[in-house]
């Protein structure tokens, strides 16, 4: 197990190094931030002063070397716009996005697995067909459009839920969270649902496919031949086997939910990392963009690692063969 973890850590470090290079070069190519930062009236001298202050006058390799050196010391640069460390800026927004993603995950799993099981166990029933048809909608309707429709229906027409913002928050361990207040929950529900719909559709299809496959296995037949109740056969024998692919995929999707909550946050004006990214791109705030992408990469790599470890915990065959 230890060898396995060390090897996985090595692979992760390599991925992060390669991504750092790609991200830095790509963002460098996007445009010159000085054009946006300097006021239109600024003369050549002022522009040169800003360029020098931001370190943009040096050649690319020098900028890159400095970036890597600082990054290794935990410094991803200061925002050109806010003049605050970029990481700090993002970390301030991270709890909101994280809360949103976790809520979406709970909804996706809490609704997706029961529906998927139902559709898998009764594939030819009306209910089963309806669930599958619904999941196709979840897949194919664009995320932003689903978000707009949710706002239109629940905020504009019905007036049940607020259309945007984060609502009232309370602090837990120094982090502001909104799921503990009624107002916060109301603000959280729509964006979380929006973010969850696609994943829910995915969980439904994975669970259904898994259930249909596992139900045909001899061990399910044998479990029934032992005289076990239907609840035990489905809830233990079938579910535990289905969970293996579901956990794998959801782990990866959790990363993408955190990193790409951008669309949902924009639609619902939700003050998370995604909205910060969009704002930073339009202002060419390079350090924030780079810091955001680097953090995304790190989050992905960490989640992947955790998923592999959970996977090994659920499936004894993985655990032992890798030891």
């Amino acid at each position: 197990m230890l060898v396995y973890i060390i090897r996985r850590l090595g692979q992760s470090a390599l991925v992060i190094a390669v991504m750092a290079t790609l991200v830095f070069v790509a963002v460098y190519a996007v445009g010159n931030p000085v054009d946006i930062l300097a006021s239109p009236q600024a003369d050549q001298q002022e522009i040169e002063a800003i360029t020098r202050r931001l370190g943009l006058d040096r050649p690319l390799y020098e900028q890159y070397g400095l970036f890597v050196w600082n990054a290794l010391h935990g410094d991803l640069g200061r925002s050109f716009v806010y003049n605050e460390p970029a990481v700090q800026l993002i970390l301030k927004r991270l709890p909101a996005t994280f809360e949103l993603a976790m809520t979406a995950l709970v909804i996706a799993v809490g609704v997706g697995i029961p529906l998927g099981l139902y559709a898998g166990l009764k594939p030819n029933s009306l209910g089963g067909h309806s669930v599958m048809a619904g999941s196709i909608l979840g897949f194919s309707l664009p995320n932003f459009w689903q978000g707009l429709m949710l706002v239109l229906l629940f905020s504009v027409v019905l007036g049940w839920l607020p259309a945007g913002g984060r609502g009232q928050t309370v602090e837990i361990l120094g982090l502001p969270v909104s799921f503990l207040t009624v107002d916060g929950l109301q603000h959280l529900l729509l964006p979380a649902l929006n973010l969850a719909l696609y994943k829910m559709a995915l969980v439904i299809r994975l669970t259904r496919a898994g259930a249909r496959e596992v139900m045909l296995q001899d061990y399910v037949r044998f479990a029934r031949a032992k005289g076990l109740s239907q609840a035990r056969v489905i809830g233990v024998h079938v579910l535990k086997n289905i969970l293996i692919p579901v956990v794998t995929v959801l782990g990866l999707e959790l990363g993408s939910m955190i990193a790409f909550a951008v669309v949902t946050e924009t639609v619902f004006a939700y003050p998370g990392m995604g909205k910060l990214l969009i704002d930073s791109i339009s202002r060419l705030d390079r350090p924030v963009i780079v810091a955001y992408l680097m953090m995304t990469v790190v989050i992905f790599v960490v989640i992947n690692l955790v998923v592999d470890l959970i996977y090994a915990a659920i499936d004894p065959r993985v655990r032992l063969s890798e030891a």
């Binding site: 296995q217 001899d218 061990y219 037949r221 044998f222 024998h237 535990k240 086997n241 293996i244 659920i314």
Partner: peptide
């Protein structure tokens, strides 16, 4: 009671 043909598949692999 019943026992099945393939012993590799009659026991649940994750329990």
């Amino acid at each position: 009671a019943m026992i099945f043909q393939d012993p590799m598949t009659t026991l649940n692999p994750v329990l």
